[in-house]
Design a protein around this nucleic acid. Sequence first.
DNA 1: GCAATGACTGGTA
DNA 2: TTACCAGCCATTG
Length: 108
Amino acid sequence: MADDEAERFTEQVLSLVESIPSGRVMSYGAIAAAIGHGGPRQVARVMARDGGAVPWWRVVHADGSPYAPETAVEAYARERTPLRGADRIVVDMPHAAWIPPRTTPGNG
DNA sequence: GCAATGACTGGTA
DNA sequence: TTACCAGCCATTG
């Protein structure tokens, strides 16, 4: 693959994650789908590289479980992110799942 | 080119 | 609800 494309993909992921509003989250697969390139494994790879420079806690698995629950749970409490329970560090995807404006496949 | 790995995802038990 | 397996895609050695 071309390094330029890899860099573009990285910026796409980071830019999209930074675009996620407070109290909302996106799954790895949703991010990959929104960008229209790669897959959840590729998004995760980008997060592992430069995820520390973006609100990574807004990026969760398809089931709503975050990468670092112990750290993310604090961020969710600050952003009022809807969880599946007070004792359950799992985001309520049906309510917290955020879809980026434009870049939505199927419309347009 | 092949094998192993990874911040994943969906299905079944 | 939890645990295990198979599928997917790109990077790495």
